[in-house]
Nucleic acid binder design. Structure first.
Length: 322
DNA sequence: GGGCAGGTGTAAT
DNA sequence: ATTACACCTGCC
């Protein structure tokens, strides 16, 4: 009962936390009640759930934990970008997205995805680890880093390690986290941040393109990882990271399944979605993960079919992620 | 067991 | 300026 509640209008908590932005949330299913998620945000181990009234923070009940959750779930706005002003809210954002005929058919299956406001340092390392990798293994590597180098938070939870701790870590420690060839990338990023050669907070305040360039200076960071950091942590919500899933979705839903060069997909997204590109990307990603798992499938009809034919889900059962 | 997974760097045109 | 290939590792 001592839950503190956040209205979070229009947010689908589970979809949001499972939408590939964050790697530190675990769900437990409870029969008889709503599912509960436990996640590490900064130095807090948060337990949250959602019902019709909103998102409830079950524990801990401290003011700092509340602040951390509130900030985490504050929608980065494409309009008010860095000048303050009114945030549009998720309903309004999705209404605007639905002006796109394809997204209008995607949204019924993906609505409620919020962009989180995460710690840039954690996101940087997490997405370096994500390259040419899969989600379960990324999750284990991040968990391993936290366990080995992060501050203990109680109940077997550990904060994400600081740049200094990671920079000073022993190679064997990183090896035990199964980073593979990404280990040197992680180490170098940690060094640069720890030594102040890369100022992540500064990247919030400069134009997206400049921030991207700065991130790409780091070894092991290309457009995709840089874009993820810009979008998921630095408030540059017009960014459109293109991974294999988003690429698949765009090719399938907008280009009749024809392969397109990466640069074309990026340009297409800019033109088509403008300031809402970041949100559009999340919906396309989640849609692809749940409905386009078969690389050669023909499930484009589910979304691109004429108006009368929509409605019934055409998706195969498919695996859902752990 | 070769191929693939939320890419990137490098060496070839 | 594009295109191919290798790469840690775990899983099928």
């Amino acid at each position: 009962m001592p839950a503190w509640t956040l209205e979070a209008a229009g947010v689908h908590l589970r979809r949001t936390l499972d939408s590939g932005q964050a790697f530190r949330w675990r769900w437990e299913t409870r029969n008889g009640g709503p599912d509960v998620a436990t996640g590490i945000v900064g130095s807090h181990r948060l337990r949250v759930t959602q019902d019709a009234r909103g998102v409830h923070l079950l524990a801990p009940g401290t003011p700092t934990a509340r602040d951390a959750l509130a900030r985490y779930l504050t929608l980065p706005s494409p309009d008010a970008t860095r000048s303050g002003g009114d945030a549009p809210g998720l309903h309004r954002i999705e209404a605007r997205l639905a002006a796109d005929a394809v997204l209008a058919r995607v949204l019924p299956r993906t609505h409620g995805i919020a962009l989180l406001v995460q710690d840039p340092w954690e996101v940087l390392i997490s997405f370096i680890v994500s390259q040419n990798n899969n989600i379960p293994k990324i999750t284990r590597s991040i968990e391993g880093l936290a366990r080995a180098l992060g501050a203990p938070l109680g109940d077997g939870a550990y904060a994400f390690p600081s740049p200094a701790r990671l920079a000073a870590s022993h190679p064997a420690t990183l090896r035990a986290c199964h980073l593979g060839y990404r280990a040197p990338y992680v180490r170098e990023a940690a060094r640069r941040v720890a030594e102040g050669r890369l100022d992540l907070d500064r990247l919030r305040r400069i134009p997206e393109a400049e921030a991207r360039e700065a991130l790409r200076e780091l070894p092991g960071i290309g457009d995709k990882v840089a874009d993820c950091v810009l979008l998921f942590a630095l408030g540059h919500v017009t960014t459109f990271p293109v991974d294999v899933w988003v690429r698949r979705a765009v090719e399938r839903l907008y280009f009749g399944g024809r392969p397109r060069p990466l640069r074309e997909i990026r340009a297409f997204a800019r033109d088509r979605f403008g300031p809402l590109a970041g949100y559009a990307q999340q919906h396309l990603f989640v849609y692809a993960r749940t409905h386009l798992r078969n690389p050669r499938g023909r499930d484009t009809v589910a979304v691109t079919a004429p108006a009368g034919a929509s409605g019934r889900a055409r998706a195969r059962p498919g695996r859902s992620r752990a």
